[in-house]
Design a protein around this nucleic acid. Structure first.
Length: 206
DNA sequence: GACAAGATTGACT
DNA sequence: GTCAATCTTGTCC
């Protein structure tokens, strides 16, 4: 039957659709995390993106279709998860930077032995991958597929007025782009929001 | 083939 | 606040 396509909005521009990923649920087995912080990376137009210099063995999935999972190794230690977005050949993706466990499970605690509070489970791109059990074996899978081991499921809609915007974290290029988005005041955000002009709150306008 | 840098985390001062 | 760990990827010669 003609199934609706609830995630067709992923085909838009990364920095524009990033806020809409907030409030979406990331699911793997019995583990569920509400996405509360993301960053936008706009493919070959973005010097901070892994896709900036065109497709490589690592980044090739970024140039595939929206809704696929791009996982990469960070500092040789952690895994980080991205949702491919935009159109085929563009290389755009959304980095999931933090989740709120819904709820924390035994499996999450077991895979995050250093965590002492629920907010330690998913408050960072490396942390949330560990808590969700996401690693390189999930590279390229379809997050919109009903039978995928890792899936995105629509969650409660987030009021644009509750979305804060700021500069991206941990990068050395294109740092001026305000492409980090989070749910205002959520305790699971990876790092405190900057004060002053650099970290303006919504609304998102353009 | 060699080397520098990296979308982070956690331990330590 | 500062800094080391750890190793893969991408770039350059």
């Amino acid at each position: 039957m003609a199934q609706e396509q609830p995630f067709s909005w992923l085909e838009g521009r990364a920095s524009r659709i990033a806020p809409r990923l907030l409030g979406t649920k990331l699911m793997r087995g019995d583990r569920v995390g509400l996405i509360v912080e993301v960053e936008a990376y706009e493919g070959q137009a973005d010097a901070a993106s892994h896709a900036f210099r065109g497709p490589t063995e690592r980044s090739r999935v970024m140039f595939d279709r929206a809704g696929l999972l791009y996982v990469y190794r960070s500092y040789g230690v952690h895994w980080c998860a991205n949702v491919v977005c935009g159109s085929v050949g563009q290389g755009s993706a959304l980095l999931i930077r933090a989740i709120e466990p819904m709820p924390p499970t035994e499996g999450m605690w077991a895979d995050r032995p250093k965590a002492r509070a629920p907010s330690d489970l998913g408050s960072g791109p490396g942390k949330l991958c560990a808590a969700m059990g996401i690693d390189g074996s999930h590279y390229g899978l379809d997050l919109l597929g009903a039978r995928s081991p890792v899936r995105l499921v629509a969650g409660p809609e987030v009021d644009p007025a509750r979305v804060v915007v700021g500069p991206r974290i941990g990068i050395s290029k294109a740092t001026e782009r305000p492409w980090r988005f989070a749910i205002a005041g959520n305790p699971h955000v990876s790092r405190p929001w900057p004060k002053g002009p650099a970290g303006q709150r919504g609304p998102l306008g353009k």
